[in-house]
């Protein structure tokens, strides 16, 4: 018995050194050398060096002159991510949907894109569909006093296909578009 435990401890120490220390160090070194920006969390700063967020992580936008992200079950808490975990048949999802329909001013003739009415898995989804971004172009343009065509062109310029031909809908990064809007 004691022999087996000692053998187990020896293997534990060896595997901690190799599979944790060695492995993690190599991956860390590769990331910090070749892709330091994303390896450190895609942190964005403004001209004065102040951190304004992560390109990968949604942040709250409620002012009319910005694109709004998808709703977040954790209020965009980057240190406590999570989804709503509500059943898609539940009254809670319906109530939140109703509130968002009102906030975006959706009507049966101009229905709200579903991604703007549903919370993402982590509550930090940095993207909305291109359709959901264009849906907000009129509000943004009016709040900024610019022609809607200009906002739409900017959104289209930022739209990408996440998986090339393997995915259907194009998406835009909300924070990147909002930064571009501020620079416009």
């Amino acid at each position: 018995m004691l022999n087996s435990v000692i053998t187990g401890l020896r293997i534990s120490i060896a595997s901690m050194v190799i599979c944790v220390g060695g492995y993690a160090s190599i991956v860390w070194a590769v990331g910090q050398t070749l892709t330091p920006f994303t390896a450190n969390g895609a942190i964005l700063t403004n001209e004065s060096g102040q951190i304004i967020g992560s390109r990968q992580v949604a942040q709250a936008f409620t002012r009319p002159e910005y694109l709004w992200p998808r709703p977040s079950a954790v209020d965009y808490d980057g240190a406590g991510a999570g989804g709503s975990n509500w059943s898609p048949t539940s009254d809670m999802v319906r109530e939140r949907g109703t509130a968002l329909v009102a906030a975006h001013g959706a009507t049966p003739d101009n229905p709200l894109p579903a991604d703007l009415a549903t919370a993402s898995g982590a509550g930090l989804d940095p993207h909305v569909s291109e359709a959901a971004a264009l849906y907000q172009a009129a509000r943004v343009a009016e709040a900024r006093g610019v022609p809607i065509a200009q906002v739409e062109a900017l959104i289209r310029g930022h739209a990408t296909s996440p998986g090339a031909f393997l995915t259907g809908d194009r998406i835009v990064n909300v924070l990147e578009v909002n930064l571009a809007l501020d620079r416009m």
Partner: peptide, 11 residues
């Protein structure tokens, strides 16, 4: 159904 899903990962 997009509840609990991420846009970048595809449907």
């Amino acid at each position: 159904n997009l509840e609990g899903k991420e846009m970048r990962l595809g449907a």
